[in-house]
Design a protein around this nucleic acid. Sequence first.
DNA 1: ACACTTTTCGATAGCTATTATCCAATCATG
DNA 2: CATGATTGGATAATAGCTATCGAAAAGTGT
Lengths: 162, 162
Amino acid sequence: MSTAHNAGQNGSFEHRSFPDRSFRDLCAAHGIAVTHQRQVLFEVMQSIPGHPSPEEVYDRVQARIPSISLATVYKNIHLFIASGLFREVSLHHGSLRVEMNDRPHHHMVCTRCKAIYDLDEEQLGDMPQPHRLPNGFVAERYSVDVLGRCAACQDAEPSSAE
Amino acid sequence: MSTAHNAGQNGSFEHRSFPDRSFRDLCAAHGIAVTHQRQVLFEVMQSIPGHPSPEEVYDRVQARIPSISLATVYKNIHLFIASGLFREVSLHHGSLRVEMNDRPHHHMVCTRCKAIYDLDEEQLGDMPQPHRLPNGFVAERYSVDVLGRCAACQDAEPSSAE
DNA sequence: ACACTTTTCGATAGCTATTATCCAATCATG
DNA sequence: CATGATTGGATAATAGCTATCGAAAAGTGT
């Protein structure tokens, strides 16, 4: 099941990640307080297929809580990420990064300081060969991000999100 | 590799007014004009390991051209990318995107229309196991972008940009 | 090398995405 | 349901980036 991120599809809870636990339990498990806005935000995010921007989420949440603030949306998205409920899709957003290396290679990205290191193809190991993919997608090449901690960030706190 | 810019031992006068030949050829090949700031920018970028942010590049270029403007740095980085000299590291940066699908999965990214599709881990095949990585980097997980063409873009020309 | 045309540069205002701040409202707990 | 801790809302502030425009430099023909 592959889902186009930019196409509006079945808007239902087909992507729901935690179908059997109440939001209340989830919050307890992750040590965060239950609030109405958090619950609505969580439900709305789960109901949107793909990877909506904070603005899109904000718009949808406003339909149910007209008084909600954009800052609240951001704060809680970060809280959800920090507590492990969600993850960031791409860690190198935030500023333009340029590729000057011509050789085939991949990247190691530090989840804390966002530094990006090159990793030669052979240092990674054998990748599965591109073969039949869903939706008639034809692969040209793989780009792998190895997400983790660089030496300097090994023992530090998780990225500060409030 | 970095083509030294300093005048070196060349006893002759200040007749070193010609910018480095290889950069000049590179510009000719890509149809862009040669300027001093472009040459310095190019050399500086090549000399920095990894993927420096525009600000970092700006700081380093300023050491050699104190009067350079940040806007010039941005304009020329974009020019280098547009002319094919460099490439962008990430295809999806710009605003915070959240992953709410907790099943292990990767992404298929169409290099032409930029659509992003989810791809379950087992559909991709076995990934190499994270093992010893350079620089003491500790891997937490892999994120794979399968770059290629979606069904709709199969037979189309490459996109104009990039 | 010189005059002329085109392109690029530098300074800065402005824009978008995101974050900090501060106090009222809400939540957790006894 | 009182009480202290946490969160939400409004908004100012910041970071990263871009548009604009006159001045300066590069490209071009002679």
